[in-house]
Structures are given as structure tokens and as C-alpha cells.
């Protein structure tokens, strides 16, 4: 299983570097998107999973759900950090500024804040069951605000910045080959996340 994953990742990296043609307008820089988009996707996925397992914990009080929720959150933070940094690098190379608070950047930053808050909260409670219960509650609360954020952030940005820097990276004109490679990259990233996640939960189960 791990060997398959390793080969898959290597295949994707090869494809991104050599097979994918340069994009119109962006040129070679588009290759960063093949890293940025998958990690951003995984960081959102991890958040969804974490919130879902939090609900399960509150319903069943089975501590396994808490382990899963916190493992997903830790990995999610890591992937979110990678997404933020790769996004900032992409922004710098394409538009000359690392950060300009456009809707996408703002959203990933807020996700980073939520992950950070959740993990800080966890580290401040010693008792296992209490920690599980309280952090599950916070995961749910922060999850509920996400729809509001998705709605308000674009409106806020566009109301304050009437001539926004159009994020052309989001509107890539993709050749078929690029789409396939992107999907492969997303798949590889998700599988990598799942592998690390299973490893973390397995470790927790063994030591408990």
C-alpha cells in the first residue's frame, strides 16, 4: 500500500514537472498550482472530517472519535500551512505581492486561525474526556460559521476594494492533460493525508 502511494506521488511529481505544458499567461508558474490546490483541498477536507467526528463523539462518547478528530485537525493545520505558504509564493510570483487579502487568501487564513484555536484549546485541557467534549463543541461552533464566511468574505472584499486583483489562478484555462494531472495530484494528496492520519490514530490506539 505504501509502495503504491510512493510510486503514485513520484508519478505525479514527474508529470507536473515534465508532462504538463506551461499555461497560457502564467507559464511555468502554473506548476505551483498543482501543489497548492491539492493541499488546500485536503486542509478543507480535514476540517470537514474533524467536525463530523466531533458530532459523532458528542453523540456516542466513544473516545476513538476524539482521536480521529484531533488527528485530522493536526494534519489539517499542517496542510493548511502549506496551502497558505504556497498560495503566498504563487501570489508573489504572479502579482508581485505575497498577501493582499483577496477572498481566497482570507478564507485560507481564517481556516488557519480556526485550526490554531482548536489545537490551542486542546492543549489547555488536561483531562481526556473533558478535553474531548469541549473541543468537540468548539469544532462544531467554528464549523457553523463557515457558511457565513463563504458568503460575507467576497462581498466584504469587493465592497472595500472596488478594483480587485482578479485571481486568474482560479480561472485556469485547463487543457485536458492538466485536469488529469491535477486530479491525480489531488488524489495523491488525499491518499497521503489518509496514510498519515491512519498512522496517527493507530499509534494512539496502541498506546491507549
Amino acid at each position: 500500500m505504501k509502495l503504491v502511494l510512493l510510486l503514485w506521488i513520484m508519478g505525479v511529481i514527474y508529470a507536473v514537472l515534465y508532462i504538463v505544458p506551461p499555461a497560457e499567461g502564467l507559464g511555468e508558474l502554473v506548476r505551483i498550482a498543482f501543489f497548492h490546490i491539492p493541499v488546500a483541498w485536503v486542509s478543507v477536507l480535514a476540517f470537514l472530517l474533524s467536525a463530523g467526528w466531533s458530532i459523532q463523539y458528542l453523540r456516542t462518547r466513544d473516545i476513538q472519535y476524539d482521536w480521529k478528530s484531533s488527528a485530522a485537525a493536526s494534519l489539517g493545520l499542517l496542510f493548511c500551512l502549506l496551502a497558505t505558504i504556497s498560495g503566498a509564493i504563487f501570489a508573489k510570483l504572479t502579482w508581485g505581492a505575497y498577501w493582499n487579502w483577496d477572498p481566497r487568501q482570507t478564507s485560507i487564513f481564517i481556516l488557519l486561525l480556526i485550526y490554531g484555536a482548536y489545537l490551542v484549546l486542546r492543549s489547555s485541557i488536561q483531562e481526556e474526556k473533558e478535553r474531548a467534549r469541549i473541543s468537540a463543541v468548539y469544532a462544531l461552533l467554528s464549523f457553523l460559521t463557515v457558511p457565513f464566511l463563504v458568503f460575507i468574505i467576497p462581498r466584504f472584499y469587493f465592497s472595500l476594494h472596488p478594483e480587485p486583483v482578479i485571481n486568474s489562478g482560479g480561472k485556469l484555462e485547463m487543457d485536458t492533460i492538466m485536469i488529469y494531472v491535477l486530479l491525480a495530484a489531488v488524489g495523491a494528496c488525499t491518499a497521503l493525508f489518509w496514510q498519515c492520519f491512519s498512522y496517527m490514530v493507530h499509534n494512539k490506539q496502541k498506546s491507549a
Partner: peptide, 29 residues
């Protein structure tokens, strides 16, 4: 949420901000 944790007041701001953010932004606009 923070009542039973250690380091309550610093944690309070950190936890409230993400939750409050949509309302915060719309009030400002």
C-alpha cells in the same frame, strides 16, 4: 468553553475571533 481551561483570558480572544468574524466583517461594512 474556556471556563474550565487553563489560561482562560488569552484563549478567550483566540477562540472568539474566528467565530465572530462574519458578523465583525458585516458590521464594519
Amino acid at each position: 468553553v474556556v471556563a474550565k481551561t487553563q489560561g482562560k483570558n488569552a484563549l478567550f480572544t483566540v477562540l472568539t475571533f474566528p467565530i465572530l468574524l462574519p458578523q465583525f466583517l458585516s458590521s464594519i461594512s
